[in-house]
Amino acid sequence: MDTPLTNFINNPPTQMDKFWRTPWDVTVPNGEQLSDFQQRIDKAWRRLLIPIALSK
Rank of each mutant, 00 (worst) to 15 (best):
L5T: 00
S55K: 15
L34A: 07
D36Y: 06
I41W: 09
N11W: 00
M1Y: 02
A53I: 09
N30I: 00
L48M: 10
S55E: 11
G31K: 00
R40D: 12
P4C: 03
M16N: 04
Q39G: 11
T27C: 10
F37H: 09
Q15M: 08
N11D: 13
P4S: 02
S55R: 15
R46S: 06
P12S: 15
N7Y: 07
R47C: 06
I9L: 14
L5N: 00
F37D: 10
S35K: 07
S55T: 06
N7H: 12
I52W: 09
M16F: 15
V26G: 05
Q33G: 07
A44G: 06
I52R: 09
V26F: 05
D17V: 07
M16A: 08
D2S: 10
I52C: 06
A53S: 09
I50Q: 13
R46C: 03
N7T: 07
D25C: 01
T6W: 00
D2G: 08
F19I: 04
P13M: 03
R21P: 01
L5D: 01
K56L: 12
V28M: 06
N7R: 15
L5I: 09
D36S: 14
D42C: 03
T14V: 00
N30L: 11
Q38H: 06
R46G: 03
D2A: 08
W45G: 04
L54K: 15
S55A: 15
P13T: 07
N10D: 10
D2W: 04
F19D: 02
M16W: 14
D42Q: 10
K43Y: 10
A44N: 08
N10P: 01
K56V: 12
M1E: 08
I52N: 04
T3C: 06
I41E: 15
R47M: 11
T6Y: 00
F37M: 10
M16G: 01
V28A: 03
F37E: 12
V28H: 01
P13D: 11
R40F: 04
P13Y: 03
I41D: 10
F8A: 01
K56I: 08
M16H: 07
F37S: 13
T27S: 07
K56H: 13
M16Y: 15
L5W: 02
L5K: 00
P13L: 06
T14N: 09
S55W: 05
N7C: 05
D42W: 02
R21D: 14
S35I: 06
V28S: 00
S55L: 11
I52M: 13
R21A: 15
F19H: 09
K18D: 10
R47H: 13
K18S: 13
K43P: 03
